[in-house]
């Protein structure tokens, strides 16, 4: 796997607390669990009439997106605003970088305006890490997706959703289906599932879209979807970027749906109470049928709701909410 070598010392403080959130792989089970538990506390706030809490009042959060995104950027923006932070959205691909300014110069300029937290998305792997390495010690960075490397907040909202519906992780069987090769979501999901104690992780897809030696990540590849889904507790679908791969990695959309599309017949091969997840946006009729996407086992929309609570939890932990007293006073 061609992942950048982000190191633990960058992402955590000397005493093991969360500092930056750039990956799921560099965090302890304890810290990942802490995010899930705190996110649970934020869930109820979304149902209140006044959804804001004053936790990050006076803090400035910059959503620095070098790659277009609506859904992820919106949930980060809502999460920060519900914590009372001031949020600035910069779609940098349309701004200074096109004038030849380097990413770091853009970040230094923003840092001079006393930004407290950067949320970074880029098409290149390692951008969030690069930025984290060059900022002062009191500025925090969250990776909102970097190239093929990682999308750790998506993976954590998936973990939250699994935990919410299925409880303890240890004995679960989880299948990840689709384009594993290009997917930063899949990579972050696999690391998080492993750290949280899931032993049976399966990746399902055509041989052209599953990296060789994927077994070294602690997962089992299945090239036959029906076999891979047998008895699983959760089916994690991935979005197929079909516009980029037709004729090369997949023969045709119809052929792909026939072999790897999630249909009601295939959902029935999983455990009877299995949940169906998808990070969105979904390609109906390509990787998932409408009947499944809108069906009783689909938790695709709850995933979106959970994403706000999980991002609120990560932001408030990075911004000081993890002193050893754990809130006891």
């Amino acid at each position: 796997m061609n992942s950048p070598t982000a190191n633990k010392h960058l992402e955590t403080t000397a005493d093991g607390q969360l500092k930056h959130f750039l990956s799921t792989s560099n965090h302890s089970r304890e810290n990942l669990t802490r995010i899930l538990e705190l996110a649970d506390s934020f869930i109820s706030f979304g149902k209140r009439e006044i959804k804001k809490v004053p936790l990050l009042r006076g803090k400035t959060v910059v959503n620095l997106f070098f790659e277009p995104s609506t859904r992820t950027r919106t949930t980060f923006e809502i999460a920060a605003k519900r914590l009372s932070a001031d949020v600035i959205n910069l779609n940098a691909s349309r701004m200074s970088t096109t004038k030849g300014e380097s990413i770091l110069d853009t970040v230094y300029t923003l840092e001079a305006m006393h930004v407290d937290l950067f949320v970074v998305r880029d098409g290149a792997s390692g951008t969030a890490e690069l930025i984290a390495r060059h900022l002062p010690d009191d500025v925090r960075v969250i990776n909102a997706g970097d190239g093929r490397h990682a999308h750790p907040t998506q993976a954590m909202l998936d973990m939250f959703t699994i935990r919410h519906y299925k409880g303890a992780f240890e004995n679960l069987k989880i299948a990840i289906v689709g384009d594993i090769l290009h997917s930063r979501v899949a990579r972050s999901q696999i690391h998080a599932l492993r750290i949280l104690g899931v032993k049976d992780i399966r990746v399902i897809g055509p041989k052209t879209l599953i990296p060789t030696k994927i077994e070294s990540m602690g997962v089992v590849p299945y090239y036959d979807m029906d076999k891979g889904l047998d008895g699983v507790d959760a089916i994690l679908m991935l979005r197929l970027q079909h516009e980029r791969m037709e004729g090369q990695q997949i023969p045709s959309q119809q052929e792909y749906f026939y072999r790897f599309g999630l249909t009601s017949r295939r959902v029935a091969l999983a455990a009877s109470d299995a949940i169906v997840m998808h990070p969105g946006p979904i390609n109906r009729g390509l990787e998932i049928s409408s009947r499944v996407a809108d069906g009783p086992q689909s938790v695709i929309l709850p995933q979106v709701t959970n994403g706000i609570a999980v991002r609120m939890a990560i932001m408030s932990l990075l911004m000081g909410g993890q002193n050893s007293m754990g809130g006891k006073k």
Binding site: R34, E37, L38, S41, L55, M325, G327
Partner: peptide, 9 residues
């Protein structure tokens, strides 16, 4: 909260 931390639950 930055001095005493957040109770996880």
């Amino acid at each position: 909260f930055t001095q005493i931390g957040l109770n996880p639950q």
